Simulated scan of single mutants.
Amino acid sequence: MRQVEPNKLITVFGGSGFIGRYVVQLLAQKGYRVRVAVRRPNLALYLKPLGDVGQIQLFQANIRDAVSCRAALEGADGVVNLVGILHEGGAQRFASVQAAGAGLIAKLAGEAGIQRFVHVSAIGADEESASEYARTKALGEEAVLKAVPTATILRPSIVFGPEDDFFNRFAAMARLSPVLPLIGGGTTRFQPIYVKDVASAILAALENEEARGKIYELGGPEVFSFKELMERMLEEIRRKRVLVTLPFGLAKLMGRVAGLLPNPPLTADQVELLKRDNVVSDEAREEERTLAALGVPATGLDSVLSTYLYRFRRTGQFERREA
């Protein structure tokens, strides 16, 4: 296995997001120079102390603008694309960000002769899906591999960690509401993966020639139903709440209304996603296209949740567990 030599330059698109901050820190720890391409560099200054002086560079770029993206790729030895959205708003549309945007970055990288390209997609990416999120994820993968055939695609299940948008969101809801919804009965299955494991997988994909041109599905060591995840979250924040089944039809109607809000708690498109399990496929396991195949040991949910969900307990970290 030939590795990309440390001190090489890696451009990370979307490096200021949840997964991005861990990717940037890990790359810096391994000796790479990191160029973080983001729309608003002034909001990503917290990344600078994650490396040595001058090791992490913030660069203004918009994936809808070829000129800024081409400049962000200049002199780069590798590229990581983390740009994605959970819901649409303003100029941020699924098609422009996850399909056209990913394709533009890959096209420019291909023209620059960059062979090391890691694109983070999602389990469930499918051109035939009823969810636009899933469809555009699949279109983005196709565009990336067309422009850079040596690119590596990573499809994680839901990602958890201190800044996640899953457990934090529902824990915040549980702090205010006596009831939590189980969309579709809460039977949808997930395989939560720790954010630091995703970052390690990205590093492995960059450095491992055997990963070139492959699509990996990433999941943690355990599979949970949506209901089990809610129960586990409530146990951790030490609150009792009623879990009420919300049929898909009603949930989709509520999602359409909530989708009009600036930061919707639920959208109709997300309801469509919940109709399919979000776990590593049998094909990926059989063909060794998993986290383990990249040499990354999976971190269990229980060892991490308590490190950040304690803040949702009634008295925070000082909350005592009842006998």
Results as ranks from 00 to 15, higher is better:
Ala268Ser: 06
Glu74Gln: 08
Ser96Cys: 08
Glu228Tyr: 03
Ile158Ala: 15
Phe167Asp: 05
Pro178Asp: 12
Asp77Thr: 05
Glu283Asn: 13
Asn208Met: 15
Val79Thr: 06
Leu50His: 01
Glu283Asp: 15
Leu104His: 00
Leu58Phe: 04
Glu209Leu: 14
Val280Cys: 00
Asn42Tyr: 10
Pro156Val: 09
Thr267Trp: 10
Gly295Thr: 06
Val271Asp: 15
Asn42Thr: 07
Gly255Met: 09
Glu142Arg: 14
Phe190Lys: 13
Arg276Ser: 15
Arg33Tyr: 13
Val118Lys: 09
Arg285Glu: 07
Asn7Tyr: 03
Glu288Gln: 11
Ala100Asn: 08
Gly316Ser: 03
Tyr194Gln: 10
Asn81Ala: 06
Asp164Thr: 15
Ser200Met: 06
Ala91Gln: 10
Val271Gln: 15
Leu206Phe: 11
Pro178Ala: 14
Ala171Met: 13
Pro247Glu: 14
Arg320Trp: 06
Leu273Trp: 05
Ala143Pro: 05
Ala204Arg: 01
Ala66Ile: 06
Leu45Ala: 14
Pro264Asp: 12
Ala66Cys: 05
Ala91Gly: 12
Ile19Arg: 00
Glu322Arg: 12
Thr188Asp: 14
Glu217Thr: 12
Val83Ala: 14
Lys227Leu: 10
Asn7Arg: 05
Ile202Gln: 05
Gln191Phe: 10
Ala72Met: 02
Ala61Asn: 10
Gly186Met: 14
Asn7Leu: 06
Ala199Asn: 06
Ala66Trp: 02
Glu128Tyr: 03
Arg241Met: 14
Val79Arg: 07
Gly161Ile: 00
Arg313Asn: 00
Thr136Gln: 09
Gly220Cys: 11
Arg311Lys: 10
Asp77Tyr: 03
